[in-house]
Each structure stands twice: as C-alpha cells, then as structure tokens.
Nucleic acid binder design. Structure first.
Lengths: 115, 115
DNA sequence: CTCGGATCTGGAGCGCGCTCCAGGTCAAGT
DNA sequence: ACTTGACCTGGAGCGCGCTCCAGATCCGAG
C-alpha cells in the first residue's frame, strides 16, 4: 500500500502541512498513522478524505460544520438520521447558491447598464 | 423625502447599527448625511445601497472586494473598464457556484448511499 | 428643566481559520 | 560521527468582519 509523507500529502492535496495538522487536531481528518519515529504517514484513504474536506471548505462550510459532518458519518447513527442531516446540509448549500445567483443578477444588471 | 434614524435603518436593512458604522468607515456605504446634532440620517438611496452591499456580502464577497466594487462604480472609469471589472467579478462568483455544486454532488452521493 | 434613551467617537475584544515560530527529534547522505 | 533537512509539539500571531465598551452628547417626553 502506498503511503505519503506529510510533505507529499500536502503536495497531493494542495493543503499545507500546517493546515493538515490543524484539521487533524480539529477532528476533521485522521487520526493519521505514525511511523516508528513518530512522523505522520498518510494513506490514500486519508488523501481521499482530505479531498472531501477540501471540497466542503471550498464550498464555504466552516470547521465546526465539517466536524459535525465527520461526527455524523462516523457515528452509529441510523441511515435515516444521516440522510436527514445530509439533506439539511444540502439545503443550506442550495441557499448559498441562491445568494450567489442574486449577486450575479445584480452584476448582470450593472453589466447591461454599462454594456 | 423620507429619511431614517440609525436604528430605523438597521431595522429596515437587517444590518446592525455597529455594522452600518463599520461599513461607512470602510467606504462601502455613504458617506451618510448628518443631522444638525451630528446624528446619521439615512436616505432611501442609502438603504438601497446597503441592500446591494448586503447582497454581495451574503454571496461571500469580502470587505476589500466591495470597497473595490464601490470605488470602480463611483470613479470616472470608462464603461468598458467597468464592464471588464464586473465580468471578472461575475466569473469569480460563478466559480463559487461551481464549488458549491461540487459539494452538493458529494452530499447527493452520500444521500444516495444511505437513502 | 430634567431625565432617559438614542447616538456619537475611538478603540478594545472576539471567533474563525489558518500560519508561523521556537526548541527539540528523527533519518538519510558523506 | 556529523551535517542537513524534514518533521514533531505547543503555543503565539494574524487578517477578517464584526461586536462591544466607555465616556460624552443630543433630544424628545413629562
């Protein structure tokens, strides 16, 4: 199984080493395995999960939101509970999309005015 | 012409008095007129402009972005320059929409998995 | 005229999400 | 063995966007 050093993981994910440690402290990823000497060893699975976290961060979710997300997915909640949670998160993201479209609409008005 | 006290303006716009002052300091709105005694007097036009700023804030634009936006719209730039700027802002917002859709897609996968 | 609530200013404080630093450890090359 | 560089931990620092506070001023109600 291929594993990655902290530097390699940072390179692969586009997330800085400091931020990877921060995410781990906050419970968003990991816990990450360690080598005999105590260095972090990232698996492909870790990298995948970091990708998910990054995706949500880019979408504007906060650290607390993601912590909750991780907690729900890893807990022993029923599939129904998970779906309820996931749908509520989805609705929140749709509302952000709507806010963006409102702003884009304003820009389009201005562009039409000057264009 | 109807004008509004700070409290009324805050009530109408949903923006706190402190934040209205902050936006004014930062050059996002105003300058707001003053009464004989030095209190702020908000016009309907001010309220409209605050609405625009709020719209962009809700869409995730930062204070610096909005300051630039205001500066461009108020300056004597040519219509072409304004349109170029507005289009670049529009593209940035579209990218945010794309990021949100990626995240929504991830949620949909999870929902499909559990649902 | 007095009282109390709204507002003023300048500046401090705060939560978030990193980012950086000091001081020490581990590991590979020479 | 020695050097060098990546990595470790705990904690400080920072930029953003407010939010709150102290102390002073204004102004409408009684």
């Amino acid at each position: 199984m291929t594993t990655l050093s902290p530097a390699a993981a940072a390179d692969r994910t586009g997330v800085s080493i400091d931020t990877l440690r921060y995410y781990e402290r906050e419970g968003l990823i990991g816990p990450i395995g360690r080598s005999a000497g105590g260095r972090r060893v990232y698996t492909e699975e870790d990298v995948f999960w970091i990708g998910l976290v990054t995706c949500f961060r880019e979408a504007g979710l906060g650290i607390a939101d993601l912590r909750e997300f991780v907690a729900i997915l890893r807990s022993d909640h029923s599939p129904q509970d998970r779906v309820v949670f996931l749908r509520s998160r989805r609705a929140a993201l749709e509302e952000r999309v709507a806010a963006l479209h409102r702003a884009i609409g304003v820009l389009d008005e201005k562009i039409a005015y000057y264009g």
